[in-house]
């Protein structure tokens, strides 16, 4: 009988966790950009607290930890598969389109992960009142967080092209 739990299976299992985490992360990113942000101006002032006080903090929790889990599992998969360094170098000199594609995907994903943890989250803490901020600073934080979130929505499109095309080669 063929062995089930092989090295290859572990690489697959971690890739599976990588995709699960990625769906959690990008699903919530798209929820923010496609649903929550466009709906806020339509919600009566008195009811907005339900979003900012309860829904957004929970969504942001799963969002940022989804991002963390995605990058960690992704780096493990790349390392275990032996293409981590080649992909970081964008496959330059390798003449292997899959390494170049996954490398671009990894760099785009890393920029997005950085945006989540070091731009969106610190600014959202001010917006949601988790960290004290003057009304002016709070407005500015909301603007920066919003634009970083939109940047990630834009980057998610080429990032997923790179990731998915590298996984099932057609180049």
């Amino acid at each position: 009988m063929q062995e089930l739990v092989t090295y290859g299976w572990w690489v697959f299992a971690i890739r599976w966790l990588h995709v699960l985490s990625g769906v959690m992360w990008i699903g919530l990113l798209w929820y923010f950009n496609f649903v929550q942000t466009p709906s806020m101006p339509k919600i009566p002032e008195a009811q907005r607290g339900a979003v900012t006080g309860f829904i957004a903090p929970t969504a942001l929790f799963w969002f940022r930890w989804g991002a963390m889990s995605t990058i960690i599992t992704g780096l493990i998969v790349a390392y275990m598969s032996g293409f981590l360094v080649g992909a970081i170098k964008l496959g330059i000199g390798d003449h292997d389109p899959h390494t170049t594609a996954i490398g671009f995907g990894m760099w785009l994903g890393t920029i997005m992960w950085f945006n989540v943890w070091f731009i969106i989250w610190p600014n959202q803490k001010k917006v949601l009142g988790i960290v004290a901020a003057e009304p002016d600073a709070r407005r500015k934080a909301g603007r920066i967080a919003g634009l970083a979130s939109r940047t990630n929505t834009m980057l998610s499109i080429p990032m997923l092209y790179a990731m998915v095309s590298a996984g099932r080669p057609f180049y």
């Binding site: 929505t153 080429p158 180049y171």
Partner: peptide
């Protein structure tokens, strides 16, 4: 002046434009 990313539609459009740039870059490098 507004930022192009204020519009969700423009954001998605730019995402697809960047994808075309990415495909060209992948083929240029590989």
């Amino acid at each position: 002046m507004g930022n192009p990313l204020d519009s969700l539609g423009t954001t998605i459009f730019l995402g697809f434009v960047l994808t075309v740039v990415l495909v060209l870059l992948i083929h240029a490098i590989a």
